[in-house]
Nucleic acid binder design. Structure first.
Ligand SMILES: Nc1ccn([C@H]2C[C@H](O)[C@@H](COP(=O)(O)OP(=O)(O)OP(=O)(O)O)O2)c(=O)n1
Ligand SMILES: [Mg+2]
Ligand SMILES: [Mg+2]
Length: 1215
DNA sequence: ATCCTCCCCTAC
DNA sequence: TAAGGTAGGGGAGGAT
């Protein structure tokens, strides 16, 4: 295994002749963590002194290279504007501001843009970024104290003046003394924390609506401008963005240009300080010198250290050769777009590997078999020729498969699931049990490394060719000068020309005519990503995957090692193994680590100590914050918020008010460098879906339906591959906007209206038939003209872990089904065992969250938690895998003092259980505590009475508690309520309540069902299964009552049911809800009163179900038949209160049906079962039709399977 | 308040 | 020609 992964360490020559790329990006100094002590006093402590000092002297020095070009650009722009302006107005305006250069900080009235205008008009200067060399006056008003303090710290004596000064100067038409306008901030002078209008410029006083419109037109300009300037990425929506005015765009373009390596400005000047030249160390010094007024010798050594940490490009070729050979010998397909699975040689998890290949072949057979008739092809051919769509869904019967095979976004989008499978054991494993040791060494101050491969897709391709590394190159499907293929990734030389990921290749070529284009190599990306993660996991057990080329490492526990050293070791090893370079950012949290990486790139690393966080955030454009994308940036810009400084000036409440609670808080935290997220090793799926928005063209309904089939198959397979089922199915449609022009992108979706519609069904499914039926309904409910559809997607959410018994049930062949069930079984075992070591093991505990064990577990958790006992629940913690989620104590009930007293290690684990929200909570409470004197604000309940709080936590546990509870209607009542009344031999009355929306769907369903019903040979068999009078037991209007259930049944079965029933519909306004949350006893009671009715005149005595537990339990337990023993046993253990279906599932899945094969009294067992079931039906018929259907479904499925074993078959004939 | 649906946004 | 996916977070607004 592991061809070159770990073995790569053999090749670690330390020659440092350096200089790979030619990217003229300025080298930045690397900072030193202030707490050099953390990893022991070493030579680094000297640096921390020097860098601290440097910071004081020159706050912006680290931004120098970055800011330089930006500022230069902005100044050029300003000059241009100014000369225009003065040409126009020279006769009118005196240069009253000559020699004055302002920097506007925070929010001002007038806005900074207006102030800029004034300066421009009256001969002054306006600086977009602070520089003590150029700025003469800082203009601001209404700063909060903290902000002012900050400002004073870096203004270093420059006057801080209110905007009124400028206005008065203009009014007086002469330069007035600024002193009277000085900002003498005071705690009270200003009533502080104004409402929005005070902060934002007048135009945005009114909320959303009023600026939404301008925003839109502005957006147009933006993208439009981007494409004409060949600068920005062409957005998906760009097609819709046409025309518009131009002013704001100028600004954006400016910002963007300086941020990117704008070739004309940057390359010329920066070429000589090429970061990757041999003398980069001294270059760095030169850089700093230039930007800072003071230089320390220490910088020299610091630089050399940086250089040392740079990877050696000379080793490159040799390494590459090795790699090439490896990949040649690669035996099987590494990345298969279709099944999204991987056959990797270094897979340790053979179990899932098996599932993988299984699913793969299955996939292939499905799509391969989906061939349409010749006549259809002919027709498609004609129609597509007519519309000139050679590469659309109309042309290719295997469109979905081929499309995904070639889609880069599909590759990176599905990568995570492949990773999960591959590193399953690592993610759940107990990391050598040394975490207690780590906890001792733990410093409590977290250290995060963010590591990201440099221009990943390109560097994997070009790694073998050193010459290519230094010239502009990009990965793209097309090398067409006029092509609209998108650049996936561009290397750093190409970025110097402005080439960016997401651009059309034609724009990239326009920017850089000699740009070399390479095709994708997904398999290699997969291999390299694996190697990458192998290395990360080797060095750190807290790895949070971000994407195939990027991860966070929590190295807090490795504090005895220098994090920067760890980073450089890892980077070196990555390079040795893969031939590709990675960059790393090191800091105290995710946010700062990420920002550090940005500075480090390419092929470098960068450390931001907590002491230097502010320094790095000052002046940082908001767009740089993760989570601030185009839209939010736009919103912020509209309010004149452009940098973190601006953000800091705004109170949290205001931000929340304006951008929403969470986003407001995020902004407020991020602009201060605060980020309380913590590494989440395991992340649970919340949804699974597939969509296609390229090449989607339909001429008629049939085309779309055929496409939908493939989409459903795809999603079904993905669900099964993950062992998940879901209850909410969402159909997403892209519909061409009215009057939208042809898409700019070839076969693109163009300007579309996005529609989505979802439906929640009662029983979670991964079944393609169910998905299809529902997605068809959803589709028809959207009332689409299929010719306008440009994209389709299907998503399944509200996921539950698939019962191995149920997974893929209802699927055609039961043999295949049984096989897949056992595969899945293995997989679940794998998960659960690692999760559940401290709970029961073995066959019966395969999904060990039966009520008893989870209560037990919970108690255990609460106790150990309250006592802050060390490792008691370490293994249970690992099981935040699905099964273990429910017993979490609500966060609000945690005792924070106890939490804080926990060792970091334990804290980490608990925090994982709360998905990282715990640190947030603690952080917030810290503030509360600081603000509110008494300590009483901390909930103490749990400390005093842990078990009480834990039992309280049961009901409000996550919905996952329901994960195996098919028939619990409690959370599905929003979907439908059923009330059924029966009377002997007379027509049945049903009451059905549905939300209005669903009524429509019912009609649709009716149509679809009517259209799809075809006679099958199953009716007879079905009659057998129903044992004669079963049909009479059915409520007459099943079709209406349990529609969602029927939907869930396999076609043949549900047709059987429908066909065997008379149809009545009798609507009634009132509905009586009989079946919600009825406990067994109640069922029983209500039953005895009403079950005096019977079928065919006979009364069924349901004595077996009397009592609690029902009387049959003890009878079966003492039976001679294993099958009956098991039935009783399983019922006691797993039965949701009063439900047989769970029990049946387990019984059938345990393949226990052969147990009594040799017993010649088999008939007796059968009749006992029959009786039990008959009485069960009687019991449930009124209250829980769905339960009966579920049981039938299970049994019928098993009946098919029974051909594999005679005894099995006879057992199932029991009915 | 809390949930749900239907969006939009963001990141890779 | 070209392969604009995927998943999670979160907000608005309605239902309860
Ligand atoms: N719009 C995008 C963004 C990314 N990717 C793919 C190609 C990238 O190589 C890979 C990783 O994305 P990164 O954001 O990490 O970008 P790179 O690794 O290419 O460059 P950098 O050096 O900035 O990390 O994802 C893509 O296909 N299209
Ligand atoms: Mg990268
Ligand atoms: Mg990345």
């Amino acid at each position: 295994m592991m061809s070159s992964g770990t073995g790569g360490s053999s090749k670690r020559s330390k020659t440092k002749s350096c200089n790979s790329g030619s990217a003229p990006k300025c080298k930045r100094n690397r900072e030193q963590k202030a707490l050099g002590v953390a990893w022991g006093a070493n030579s680094f402590s000297a640096f921390s002194f020097s860098s601290t000092k440097k910071r004081r002297n020159a706050p912006f020095s680290d931004f120098a290279s970055y800011m330089e070009s930006k500022e230069r650009k902005l100044r050029v722009q300003f000059d241009a504007d100014a000369s225009n302006s003065s040409n126009r107005d020279s006769d009118v305006n005196k240069c009253i501001f000559h020699g004055i250069s302002i920097f506007v900080d925070g929010f001002t009235i007038p806005s900074s843009q207006e102030l800029r205008g004034f300066m421009l008009k009256h001969g002054g200067r306006f600086e977009n970024y602070f520089s003590r060399h150029r700025v003469t006056h800082i203009i601001c008003n209404n700063l909060p104290d903290s902000k002012l303090k900050n400002l004073r710290a870096f203004s270093r004596g420059l006057p801080i003046v209110k905007p009124a000064w400028l206005l008065d100067c203009i009014a007086a038409n002469e330069l007035l003394n600024w002193v009277p306008y000085q900002l003498v901030q005071l705690g009270k002078d200003i009533p502080k924390q104004q409402k929005l209008p005070t902060y934002f410029s007048p135009k945005s006083v009114s909320t959303s609506k009023s600026f939404e419109t301008p925003t839109k037109s502005h957006l147009k300009i933006y993208t439009d401008g981007m494409s004409t300037s060949s600068e920005g990425s062409i957005d998906k929506d760009s097609d819709s963005l046409t025309g518009g005015s131009n002013h704001e765009k100028v600004n954006d373009g400016c910002l963007d240009n300086k941020k990117k390596r704008e070739p004309l400005v940057l390359t010329a000047e920066d070429a000589e300080k090429s970061r990757w030249s041999h003398v980069k160390g001294s270059m760095l010094v030169a850089n700093i010198l230039e930007a800072t007024s003071t230089v320390e010798e220490a910088d020299q050594s610091e630089c050399s250290h940086v250089k040392g940490s740079t990877l050696d490009a000379n080793k490159f070729e040799g390494t590459a050769d090795v790699l090439i050979e490896d990949s040649i010998h690669e035996p099987a397909k590494i990345y298969d777009a279709r099944n999204t699975e991987v056959n990797s040689s270094n897979l340790e998890d053979t179990c899932s590997e098996k599932v993988v290949s299984e699913s793969s072949s299955h996939t292939k057979s499905i799509t391969g078999g989906n061939i349409c008739s010749d006549s259809k092809k002919m027709k498609d051919h004609n129609s597509t020729r007519f519309s000139g769509q050679w590469n659309s869904t109309l042309r290719d019967v295997n469109f979905v498969e081929n499309y995904f095979k070639n889609s880069r976004l599909h590759f990176i989008g599905t990568w995570r699931n492949r990773y999960r499978k591959r590193f399953l054991n690592l993610l759940h494993g107990d990391h050598h049990g040394n975490s207690a040791v780590d906890a001792l060494n733990c410093t409590q101050s977290p250290t995060i490394i963010h590591i990201d491969m440099d221009c990943f897709f390109v560097s994997v391709i070009t790694r073998n060719h050193r010459d290519l590394c230094e010239s502009p190159a990009a990965v793209c499907h097309s090398d067409n000068l006029k092509g609209t293929a998108e650049i996936s990734s561009a290397n750093y030389p190409a970025r110097d020309y402005g080439v960016k990921a997401g651009m059309f290749v034609r724009d990239a070529k326009a920017l850089c005519p000699h740009l070399q284009i390479f095709p994708y190599d997904f398999e290699s990306y997969e291999v390299v990503a694996d190697q990458f993660y192998e290395i990360l996991h080797k060095h750190c057990n807290k790895v949070q995957a971000v994407s195939c080329d990027e991860a966070f490492l929590d190295v807090s526990d490795l504090a005895h090692k220098n994090p920067e050293h760890i980073a450089s070791i890892i980077r070196q090893e990555i390079f040795d193994t893969t031939g590709c370079t990675a960059s790393a950012g090191i800091a105290g949290n995710f946010l700062m680590a990420r920002l550090s990486t940005r500075k480090a790139k390419p092929n470098g690393q960068y450390f931001i100590s907590s002491a230097k966080v502010d320094e790095h955030l000052i002046g940082l454009p908001v767009k740089e914050l993760p989570g601030v994308g185009r839209a939010l940036e736009e919103k912020l810009t509209n309010r004149n918020i452009r940098t973190c400084d601006h953000l800091r000036a705004i109170p949290k409440e205001v931000l929340q008010n304006e951008f929403g609670v969470k986003i407001g808080e995020l902004l407020w935290h991020y602009c201060r460098g605060v980020d309380n997220r913590s590494v989440q090793v395991v992340q649970e799926n919340k949804s699974v879906g597939a969509e296609v928005n390229w090449g989607v063209r339909f001429n008629e309904l049939k085309d779309s339906q055929e496409f939908l089939v493939n989409l459903c198959k795809e999603v079904s397979l993905r669900l099964q591959g993950l062992g998940l089922q879901g209850r909410t199915i969402t159909l997403k449609v892209k519909k061409k906007k009215k009057g939208a022009p042809d898409p700019a992108k070839y076969m693109g979706c163009g300007d579309c209206k996005n529609l989505s519609h979802s439906m929640t069904i009662h029983a979670a499914t991964d079944n393609v038939d169910v998905l299809l039926r529902i997605s068809r309904q959803l589709f028809s409910s959207l009332n689409l003209d299929v010719r306008e559809v440009r994209g389709l997607g299907l998503m399944v959410s509200r996921l539950e872990t698939a019962e191995f018994m149920q997974q893929g049930s209802e699927r055609n062949g039961l043999r295949a089904w049984l096989a897949s069930a056992s595969e899945t079984n293995k997989e679940s075992c794998n998960i659960v065992h690692s999760a559940n070591d401290n709970v029961s093991k073995g066959a019966l505990s395969v999904d060990g969250y039966g009520s008893s064990s989870s209560v037990q577990h919970e108690t255990q958790f609460a106790q150990s938690f309250a006592q802050a006992s060390t490792k008691v629940m370490s293994s249970s913690e690992k099981g935040k895998c699905k099964e273990m989620v429910s017993p979490l104590v609500p966060m609000s009930q945690l005792d924070l003092e106890v939490l804080e007293s926990l060792p970091h290690d334990i804290h980490f684990e608990i925090n994982q259980m709360y998905k990282g929200k715990l640190t947030d909570l603690m952080e917030n409470c810290k503030y509360i505590r600081n603000d509110v004197p008494p300590v009483k604000s901390i909930p103490e309940a749990i400390k005093e009475n842990p078990s009480a709080s834990c039992s309280k936590s049961l009901p409000d546990g996550p919905s996952k508690a329901m994960r195996h509870c098919h028939s619990d209607l409690s959370d599905s009542t929003s979907q439908f309520k059923i009330s059924v009344k029966h009377s002997i031999g007379s027509p049945v009355t049903d009451h059905v309540t549905l939300p209005a929306k669903h009524k429509v769907e019912i009609e649709n369903l009716e149509r679809i069902e009517a259209a799809s019903i075809s006679p099958t040979g199953d009716i007879n068999m079905h009659a057998t299964i129903m044992k004669g009078n079963m049909a009479d037991v059915m409520p007459a209007s099943t079709r209406k009552v349990a529609r969602s259930v029927i939907r869930d049944l396999p076609d043949n079965l549900h047709h059987d049911i429908l066909d065997s029933l008379p149809v009545h519909f009798q609507k009634s306004g009132d509905s009586i809800l009989v079946c919600e949350n009825v406990c067994p006893g109640e069922i029983f009671k209500s039953d005895t009163t009403e079950s005096s009715r019977g079928r065919m005149g006979s009364v069924v005595n349901i004595h077996m179900w009397k009592g609690n537990p029902p009387s049959w339990i003890s009878k079966f337990k003492h039976s001679n038949f294993l099958i009956l023993n098991l039935l009783a046993e399983y019922y006691s253990m797993f039965g949701e209160p009063g439900l047989l279906s769970n029990t049946l599932q387990r019984l059938l899945s345990a393949q226990a049906l052969d147990l009594d094969a040799g017993n010649n009294e088999w008939d007796k067992a059968l009749s006992s079962c029959c009786e039990l079931l008959t009485q069960y039906i009687e019991l449930k018929i009124k209250s829980d039709m769905e339960e009966i259907f579920i049981c039938f479904r299970l049994l019928k499925s098993s009946y098919y399977a029974a051909s594999t074993s005679p005894s099995c078959a006879s057992f199932l004939c029991w009915i």
